[in-house]
Design a protein around this nucleic acid. Structure first.
Lengths: 198, 198, 198, 198
DNA sequence: TATGAATGAGTCTTCATTCAT
DNA sequence: TATGAATGAAGACTCATTCAT
């Protein structure tokens, strides 16, 4: 019945993501987004107020989506090993399912440091992080996980996947990251399982 | 006794790196670099031709430096384990010794895609990569290293360190990456050593 | 009662013509046009896209005006003699009526070689030329006009007026070209009338 | 025995003329001339002092050359008719022999209006002009030439050739102007000969 | 005479944002 | 809500010219 299924707001977000993907946020002009979204400049400002706000909205959405996937996978993990692997797999699943969003998050973490959204984003991230810590803490304490400085775990678990995602999303690697799902999950677990574990 | 030891060209590069570190390449204006380097606009263009070329020069230099460190460490590695760890350690040593350059490389890999230096850089990287492959190939073939798709090794070895370097260099993590040198080296080895290895 | 009758676009064109007349296109800065037109830089670029495009628009307009005058005069010519003289007179009338535009066209024919308008202009000119050829062809064939290579006619008919227009419009000659309307018309006819004509 | 026949000064002039021909004076940069002449910037300034001075030198030389040709042809003219035709022919001969110089003069008369050379040039031109007037005056007085306002003669004699030279030198006309030498000479004479002349 | 690094005022152009309709 | 003309600050880059060697 309506002329379009998507709301004007969503059309703008979609157009913006495409533009940001092609040119980066700074090199994308309001006019490029206007052209691709077929909305007027005025309309864009009515809905978002600024270019940065569009980027921020995309960023927050994408991150929430990733966290959603992660929460779901982690919820069904019964052992530490499954927990560790869930983190890695969740990231890989999300990247493979939404490469554009993943690329956007990967390439623009810095942009929001100076943005007005920095605080809100920081809060979200912290709260998400503390959920994770709560899940893993008992296993670290019990020795089911190698004891390391707290700051290292995240990098060891997701570092390889992050690294390969960059390669793949920029075209420098050809194989879909999904193909390496278990390889990176295993790598994470092998790096974190206690020495005596077999 | 001249007024300055450094060449004008180097002064410009140094000033540019500082500015890029503080604001990012796009947000850094030619005028900021001029002010910090005490060189004239004209002089900057005489030597580099464009803002992007300054960034490209920094990028190429930094990468070469990292590769230097890596080559040196790898040369003294006698076993696969030492080889794997050398890659991780070389990265960490370089990051810790030259945080500004590391930050610059980490945040600006995309910048050179369109630059004139892109080709030269591609060549260098490929030749460097093939050196690495040559070093590791025999060990992969002999089973001294876990057999995985070739594309995965680099991400598994350096992924965690890359990830933590980002955290540390952006201020989101406090501990100097050097403190985790052996942790990330071990993680790389544990992820890649053959199953039966003890 | 609005503040101004003219559209912003026309105001910019008028200001630009004045500036170009005073300084030439290259020596005229966008800022000069802005100052005289009281429009903002942005507005100028909104409407024209570049300094050259403003010049191109002026050029096309001016030429069209001249062709208009020419077409009108030629339409009422009953004999070859009147036709030849109409071409000369039309040019002189137009120059005398719109000295600024004439000066602009005379001094900037080269400007449009690289412009996007070059093609459109070429088409217009060709079509206009073929109209002229069509008018004169029968008289050339009938011997009512001296038989010469086709390329020569235009220069013989309008050359003297073009030449004097340059002199007058640049201030090197004092007498209004209108004073010599019949002299140049006669010169054209005398140069082209058949030998035996009296 | 020497490395080059041409003096450095002449090399610069030649390079400059090529550049000016291709891009116009304003669009030609000192650097373009430097590149083509294989001289250094410093050398160019040593010899000429400014970009405009190079243009001025070219202009003055070219004009002198034209006047030379004109003087020679006029000297051997025994009748008014031969005198009138000499002026037209001299111009055509010079243009055909030195198209680059002619193009340069034709397209840059305006440039020197503001130059420091304006005065010197004006003097030369005036003195040359008075020579011409002296030659023709008796014939005008005697009625051997049509009586017209003094300002008109030059335009009537050389206008057609000037006009066609522009066409040819810009590529809009294909036939070498030399082919029309007598046509334009005749046109000039037919336009200026007394009515009763046969 | 020759060289080329250095200078810096001056240009065009871009672009986020505002606002009258 | 939508539109797009208007704004003007800000930026990258150019280029004639100077000058130390």
């Amino acid at each position: 019945m309506t002329t379009s299924k998507k709301s004007r707001k969503q059309e703008i977000l979609d157009a913006a993501l495409s533009c940001f993907t092609e040119n980066g946020i700074e090199a994308t002009t309001i006019d490029m987004i206007r052209e691709r979204s077929r909305a007027s400049v005025g309309s864009m400002y009515h809905h978002f107020g600024s270019k940065e706000s569009i980027a921020a909205a995309l960023y927050v959405d994408a991150l929430a989506e990733h966290h959603e996937v992660q929460k779901a996978l982690l919820a069904s993990a019964k052992t530490v090993e499954e927990g560790v692997k869930a983190i890695a797999r969740a990231y890989i699943d999300w990247v493979s399912a939404h490469p554009d969003k993943a690329r956007f998050v990967l390439h623009n973490r810095g942009v929001l440091a100076k943005s007005a959204l920095a605080n809100e984003l920081g809060d979200r991230t912290r709260s998400h992080m503390s959920d994770l810590v709560q899940w893993f803490r008992p296993h670290i304490d019990s020795g089911a996980l190698k004891k390391l400085p707290l700051e290292c775990y995240a990098s060891i678990i997701t570092g390889p996947a992050h690294d390969y995602a960059r390669l793949w999303l920029s075209g420098r690697a050809k194989t879909d990251i999904k193909a390496f799902r278990e390889i990176f999950a295993d790598a994470a677990w092998n790096a974190l399982k206690p020495e005596h574990s077999r």
